[in-house]
Write a protein that binds this DNA or RNA. Structure first.
Lengths: 313, 313
DNA sequence: GTTCGTTACGTAGCTCGTAAAGATA
DNA sequence: TATCTTTACGAGCTACGTAACGAAC
């Protein structure tokens, strides 16, 4: 059934990223150049160009070889993911040397499919009811649901990659065809054992010696301005960014910090955590978070969109 | 505290992907060319080149405008994520026009930090114990934990992006410095109401009219060969790929299908689901899944690696 | 004729390899 | 000298805009 093409590198965009990764692997430009079957000055040129384009240095050079800079280290997982994404796309929609479609025979039909995107934190809250509602109201409708960060959802709406998006509002641009579907207060979430220490220091968490845990990097997170207000108001100093919600739940369960999230996300965090967690409502201290749904203005899926909209009324 | 640069496009690699996305947004090459401030033949050339490099057509052209192909539609979210990734990196490690580091002052220190990567499905199982163990054994050690798909973890080990990886084994290349840390049977997971129908048709699920739910696309998923065996043995016909585990839990809760996963992942799925789920052990029918940990051969983190290794003995 | 698209073609600039040079032991 | 790196430079290729062309109504 499956006919996997094992690509070493994706076909496009590879050269500069591939050069950087191979250099990181070999810890030497000349050895990396060998491995890539190019000359060493060419590799040097490519990495210089990548650094110039990115705007920061990736590699420290010296006479005994190379070492990644902090920025290079930070960039590396992104480079890996980009190349892996491209490899995967090309493996799925690839053609082998005979010109036949290669990877598997499932046709990636997209026409007529109602595509929904939900912000990751909201998906455990809404996905099931969306499935139920659409199955009931539009039994013949095919639909797909994906979860992505808010900013990606907004882009996908713009570029007609999805037909409906549901997300927490943030300060980046707001779509004309978006509607407010709810408002929520934020709550502080912590381990039961940390509860009293945090509550008595709420105006100055600097004296609480565990870090504020933030999802992903601050730029990826949805509300940079709100985050800024929170950190300032609570006088937070210790700060740790984590990769995702599962990791965050584990950190809190291990009493290694606390976080602040919208109230509706608490249940998901409690489900993910093995330990007893406590919440402190912060509705009075901070602006509430708004939930939106948006869709392209000329969507052919008026019916399904209204079905979803009705869920929030 | 935060100084966000709002980039419309990332600086590098943008041109072809940006051209494609703008074309999708405008549904017209000439209008997209206008929006990008390039001439229309140039845009046409860029998209042709992108199609040639990718190996498949992205756009159907005709006299009244353009329309994405199925492949183009499939590729679009990848293009969005790649550009979003690049934007985020450049926003975090960006320099503004004054030459000052822009986004926020947190230094992305990487030296001396023990970096762990865990496969997404395993992370809820292990993360907390890793945190506990490392905190006890190495109280001064700074560490980071990220979750990624298995293939990305393997690449990150190769390119020295992380110091330790924990993942389910698959058929792609195996690291020399990897050790087996456990073995698991696979189980079928379904809604309580579907349990009896599935159990009595286990040799021929074709007659069960709900789809087998697979995580992500088959190429991304960890065990293409195992998946192939499963689908063949159970005679599965209906097949649906989903974006992530939360969506999968919702589909099963909504009685829209079933899946097969390693036993240790069942608890996470049950936590994510609002409905009563049932499992059917399949240990006799299929090969067991192996869990591995691996690390670069010249790691400076021998101590922490052994602490983690001890957890599995 | 107008509005979509593509093809043709010359130029500017980019990318490559070869060759030479700089740094450190 | 050996082993890393970078700089210099010319040849060939690529990507761009201008101009011309094709198709549909």
């Amino acid at each position: 059934m499956f006919h996997l093409i094992k690509r070493e590198w994706p076909i496009i965009f590879n050269e500069e990223l591939q050069s950087f990764l191979t250099a990181s692997n070999k810890k030497s430009l000349s050895m990396a150049a060998d491995a890539l079957h190019i000359t060493q000055p060419t590799l040097s040129y490519r990495i210089k160009k990548l650094e110039k384009d990115l705007g920061f240095k990736l590699i420290e050079r010296n006479w005994e070889g190379i070492k990644l800079t902090n920025e290079g280290q930070y960039f590396l997982p992104y480079a890996v993911r980009i190349l892996e994404d491209l490899k995967n796309v090309q493996n799925v929609i690839g053609f082998n040397s005979d010109g036949n479609q290669a990877t598997y025979e499932i046709v990636h039909k997209n026409e007529g499919i109602f595509r929904i995107g939900i912000n990751s934190l909201l998906s455990s809250l809404f996905t099931e009811s969306f499935i139920m509602e659409l199955s009931n109201d539009h039994p013949d409708l095919e639909f797909d649901i994906i979860t992505r960060p808010t900013n990606i959802l907004k882009n996908l709406i713009d570029y007609k990659g999805i037909d409906l998006a549901v997300y927490y509002g943030n300060e980046t641009h707001i779509h004309t065809h978006s509607s407010l579907i709810g408002t929520e207060e934020v709550v502080l979430l912590c381990h039961e054992d940390d509860f009293h220490d945090i509550q008595k220091n709420l105006d100055n968490l600097q004296s609480f010696n565990k870090p504020f845990l933030s999802y992903d990097n601050p730029v990826l997170s949805n509300n940079i301005e709100l985050l800024d207000i929170i950190l300032t108001t609570l006088n937070v100093r210790a700060f740790k960014t984590l990769d995702n919600w599962i990791i965050m739940a584990s950190y809190i369960a291990a009493k290694k910090g606390y976080t602040i999230i919208p109230r509706s996300s608490v249940s998901q965090m409690i489900n993910l955590s093995s330990a007893p967690l406590k919440t402190i409502p912060l509705g009075d201290m901070f602006p509430h978070i708004k939930m939106y749904m948006s869709h392209p203005k000329d969507s052919i899926f008026k019916g399904p969109i209204n079905s979803i909209k009705n869920l929030f009324e």
